[in-house]
Each structure stands twice: as structure tokens, then as C-alpha cells.
Amino acid sequence: MTALPPPSKVKLGLVIDLDTCVGCHACVTACKGWNDQGYGAPLSDMDAYGSAPCGTFLNRVHSYEAQESDTPSKIVNFPRSCLHCDNAPCVTVCPTGASYKRAEDGIVLVNEDACIGCGLCAWACPYGAREMDGEAGVMKKCTLCVDRIYNENLPEEDRVPACVRTCPTGARHFGDLGDPESAVSRLVAERGGYDLMPEMETAPVNKYLPPRRKGAADVAPLTPLLDVQASGFAGWLDRLLEKF
């Protein structure tokens, strides 16, 4: 049913640290690797070895340069995937009921057996989180690795989304953003995590942590070393030499 459920108590989602992300695209590869072989139609590639390869991905990493007037410009690597919005516009526009938001944990999913591939949900999403599979003709999107996080056949440390598990810098965090005491919620509170395009009023569950402020330090790091106070014999010699 494409009516949105009442806001769930548990809101599973990601917190992405833009300060830590180095833009290695390992999350993109891990995501494609996992989602190629389990849940739903595999993520097809069209013209994979040709001049214009085009594939289906559930996660993309942009790199931006942000230039503020008072600081040096900084490069920010920016992973972009489904934000599992509380007020998901992609769900309500679906004519077939294929697109839905889970009442128990808030994950937004597509029932591919009911998807007619009209593409309207991709139009309704401000974040470009949905991509039509060129081969299967059904809409693909981040499942938050729903087939990993509850999978008791996997070792416990693997029961997180593939992108989180693989991130070499720990820039991706997974948890319950509906619980204010969870590690991810505290991280968001401490670091000032924010929503993307708040003006769209989609109420995203995923949050982004801003890059830490960088620039010239107040005191140059080597300055304290210049002010050496010699003591003992060296101190006596220092004072003696200053007399001449």
C-alpha cells in the first residue's frame, strides 16, 4: 500500500561523515557487489565495456569543492543514496503499491514483482536515489541491506549495510535514528548532523555530518618551540652569551 505508515518508532538509517569520507568509492563497489546477487533483480550494466557504459547503482559519490570567503577551499566527498525519508514522496506517487515504507523500521523498499517501471517515483525523489534498471525495467534503490541487517546467518559484525561494513575510514554509521540515545543519534547531536534539501519537506532519516572547520590555526604549530627556556649549564651559557 503506498499510503505512508504513521511515523515508526524505529528509524533505521545512515549517518555519513563528510569530514572523514575520502571519496574512495569503496561503498559504491561494496553496495553493487552485495546487491548484485541477493535482493531483487541484479544491478545491470549496459554497454559495460563500450564507450558509454551505464549501470544501475544504489549509491554514488560526488566530489565537491566548497569555498568560503574566510577559509581555504576544501574538497568534500559526498556519498548520495536513499535517505529513507519519513515523508517519502516516492512512495505516495506509486500507482501499483510496489513502492512502500516499512511500518516497523522505516526502510523504504520496492516490491519489484509489482513495479511496472513507470519511473514516477524517481521523478518524485529530490535526491536521485532511485535508478531504473536498464535490463529488468524495475526501479532499484537502497534497501539499507535489509537482507544483511536482520540476517542471523551472518556473523554479528556483518549485520550492517555493505557500504558501512566496507568503509575504510569509518565515515558511514548505521543505527536507529528514532532512538535519541543511540550512537548515531548522539553523533548527529554532537556534530550538528543535518538534512539534505530541507525545503523539500521530505523529513529524511539519514543525516550528514558537516566537514569540520579547517584553515589556519590560531597559533602556528611550531611557535612554542621557538620559545625554548634553557636550564642548567646550557641556561648559564645562554645568559652569559647574551651579556656580550
Partner: peptide, 14 residues
């Protein structure tokens, strides 16, 4: 869209 402050431009597409 990105939440980044200042002038923002894309330097590398995904």
C-alpha cells in the same frame, strides 16, 4: 542539496 557552506562546485562526478 549538499548542505555545504560557501561557493560549491562539483570537481569530480560520481
Amino acid at each position: 542539496a549538499t548542505g555545504l557552506a560557501g561557493q560549491v562546485r562539483q570537481v569530480a562526478p560520481p
